[in-house]
Each structure stands twice: as C-alpha cells, then as structure tokens.
Amino acid sequence: MADNSDKRVDDVTGTETTGHVWDGIEELNTPLPRWWLWTFYATCVWGVIYVILFPAWPLVTGATEGVLGFSTRGQVAADIAAVDEARRDQMGTLASMELADLPDDPELQAFAQRAGASVFANNCSQCHGAGAAGVQAAGYPNLLDDDWLWGGTLEEIAHTVRHGIRNEADPEARWSEMPAFGDILVEEEIDALINHVRALGGLSHDAALAAAGDELFQDNCSSCHGIEGMGMTDLGAPNLTDAIWLYGGSEEEIEHTIRYSRFGVMPPWGERLREADVRAVSAYVHSLGGGVEAAPTN
C-alpha cells in the first residue's frame, strides 16, 4: 500500500522521496522539467491541427480528407504532370520528327533512350525480360542480338511496337502464319525436314536425311524462308541459317514448330502508349546492341 506519509530526504542521493514505499523500497522524486510537459502539450496541439489539415481518420470506405485537400495520390499525379511539363518540348519534337533523323540529334536521342528504358520496364519487360533477353521457351524474342524477324531499323521497330504482331485488334499488325505441317507431311518427311533445317543452321544432323529434306524444303518452306533458308523480314520468316533460334534449335523444338507451327502474338502498343513513348521505346530497343542502321540485311 503506497501512501505519501513517509516523504523524506534520501541520505545517499540527497533527493527527496515521493513517500511511496513498496516492500521497503522507496521512490526518489526526480521531477521532469516543466518544459518537457509543454513540449508534450505542443505535440498534442499539433496532432489536432494535423488531423484537421490532413487526411487522418479512417472511415468505412475512405478517410477524412483534411481541409488542405492533400493526398499522396494527388501528389504523385502532380509530380507526373510536372515531369510531363518539363519534357513536353522534347516529347513533342520526338513525336513529330522523322524518326530516321533521331541519330542526328544526340541529345534528343539520349533523352529518348532513357525515356524508352522506363517505358520498356513498365510495358515490355513482362515478356521480353528486364534485360530484354527474351524467353526462348515461350518464344519471346531476344532484343539484344542482331537478328530481327520484322526488321531492326528504328522505323521498323517503331512499326512493330505501334501495331504489334499477329493481333486482330490492329489491321496494320505484322502478320504471317506458318502452316502446321503435321497435317500435310508424313512422319518420314518431317524427320527429313528436321535434319535439313538443322543442317542449314550448322547443327549436328543425319546427312542422308538432310539431303532427302532438301526437296521437301524447296517445295514447302522456301516460299517464305527462301531457297537458301535465309528468311524474309517482310514476311517475318526467320533466317534458319544463323545461330539464333526463336524457339530453340533442338530436334524436339524444330519438330514441334514444323508439326504444329508457332503463333507468337504481340499487342499493338500504339493504342496504349503515346506516339512519343512508342518512339522512345523503339530508340531504347534500337540501342540495345542489335539496332540496324539502314535497310534490313537479313
């Protein structure tokens, strides 16, 4: 039982006790400075002011708004608007200029590449990967190499980004379709073709089967992939003689491609992105190491 009747000055410390005694243990009275109390009151007052000024109390479907009308979402929107405003001139020039002239303006090119990097990270990296290396198992192309299905100049890349590939949403989308030869050719013919294609790509193969596949290739494949298997970018037909395989160069993958065909799709980004963003991301992709200067060569 605590009471104040035993208040005295403690011998050891010279400090007055509060008079509170619990089991013989006395409590020294070392009062806080009064300004500390004022500081505490000041924080309470500030708390009330804050609650009035800023969003504070959670309600069922939202929160009190505060008289200043501040919101973090609004602040982000304002920040984005400020950045857009600061970039307006450059984005305007980028959207209206002749894209092929971009390399002549190194400053704008650097701006476009940096802006494109963030457009890419937000919109493209989901399939093509953060490093733009693609995903072979899913047929998402590697954008770092020098092989382009639909052409690697700035304008060709921009067209692909703007309209997409094999989508029905955009009539200008890149479009080609390889037949599924599983219904057309017999087992032996497919086997021969696999070996012929691997021979074209310089991979290990059965020479006899590959030779037998040559005629099949000319009859069925050369109209798109070319007589020598070099492909045709106008049709998005891959070059089969290079070291790059969109879906992989193993016998199983090639067999799957021949038997069932492939149908990689990319959405038309012109619908979602501003023209300047389309051009910026094209400039970025073009700068990743495979960009083609003039007309496509393969």
Binding site: G129, A130, G131, A133, N142, L144, D145, D146, D147, N239, D242, A243, I244, G289, N298
Partner: peptide, 8 residues
Amino acid sequence: NPTFVTLS
C-alpha cells in the same frame, strides 16, 4: 541480364 548474347 543476360550474361551473354549470341549473334546471328
């Protein structure tokens, strides 16, 4: 990312 790129 990636560690290397194979060219054509």
